[in-house]
């Protein structure tokens, strides 16, 4: 899987690169409009992460260029501007998703994987790992083909963990993903903890071959047993 990251801020670029490489993606980078344009016109990528505000030009022009060349790459816009206008314009020009800075690496990971999976979707939208299966269409969770009832939040949390397998998911990333913009209260952490406790119980009692580990009390990691 080849990913191109177009971002002019070198520190952010290296963070994203490092995080994506941990997922065994092949990551290439471009830090200005012209080099980005060169790369997208020459090479094929599975996914492009695109910053809208670039030196020498707008990321939206790159999107337009892609569309003109009839390239069907998956594009996720990364922008410091949480502007509905840009979002709509971006999505209209063929972007697949829009992520506002600052974001958690776990969130970026989940978005990239979701976009890639949507592309490869062949009628079924499920995640399998060991003896478990998460059906995103039916919103059901099976362990050894046995259905285990999960509430809405537990399902979302498990989905998020599976997209970030073996990666750190901080409590705040989890709260933000599951709660969206409503996550601005630290009370949510207790709630997250409570949900995870229930989820762990269900995983244990159903003998699922996955486990949610705590990491330094800062976050969690899903690992296969």
């Amino acid at each position: 899987m080849k990913i191109l990251v177009i971002e002019d801020e070198p520190q952010l670029l290296s963070n994203i690169k490092e995080s994506l490489e941990k997922e065994k993606f092949l990551v290439e980078t471009a830090s200005d409009y012209h080099s980005a344009l060169d790369k997208i016109l020459i090479y094929e990528y599975d996914c492009i992460l695109l910053d809208i505000m670039l030196p020498n030009g707008s990321g939206l022009n790159i999107l337009a260029e892609l569309k003109k060349e009839d390239k069907s790459e998956n594009v996720i816009i990364i922008s410091a501007k949480d502007s509905l206008d840009d979002k709509l314009k971006g999505l209209e020009l063929g972007a697949d998703d829009y992520l506002t800075k600052p974001f958690h690496l776990a969130e970026l990971n989940a978005r990239v994987k979701a976009v890639l999976r949507r592309q490869r979707l062949e009628g079924k939208n499920t995640i399998e790992l060991g003896n478990i299966l998460l059906d995103l269409t039916e919103r059901s969770f099976l362990v050894n083909n046995q259905s285990i009832p999960l509430n809405r939040k537990e399902f979302d949390i498990l989905n998020y963990f599976l997209l970030n397998k073996n990666r750190l998911v901080t409590k705040s990333a989890l709260a933000e993903h599951v709660w969206g913009d409503n996550s601005d209260n630290a009370d949510n952490y207790d709630f997250v903890y409570y949900q995870i406790k229930n989820l762990r119980k269900k995983l244990q009692s159903s003998k699922a071959e996955i486990e949610i580990e705590s990491i330094y009390g800062i976050g969690y990691k899903l690992v296969a047993l």
Binding site: N15, P102, H104, T170, I218
Partner: peptide, 30 residues
């Protein structure tokens, strides 16, 4: 402020993922 905030958040996340932290250090990072 959005971009610098994104950088620090992600740097810290990567730092924790590195592991090899003592509990006290991890607590501080948290």
């Amino acid at each position: 402020l959005q971009t610098p905030l994104a950088i620090v958040t992600n740097k810290l996340e990567l730092l924790i993922e590195e592991g090899n932290l003592q509990n006290k250090q991890a607590e501080n990072i948290g």
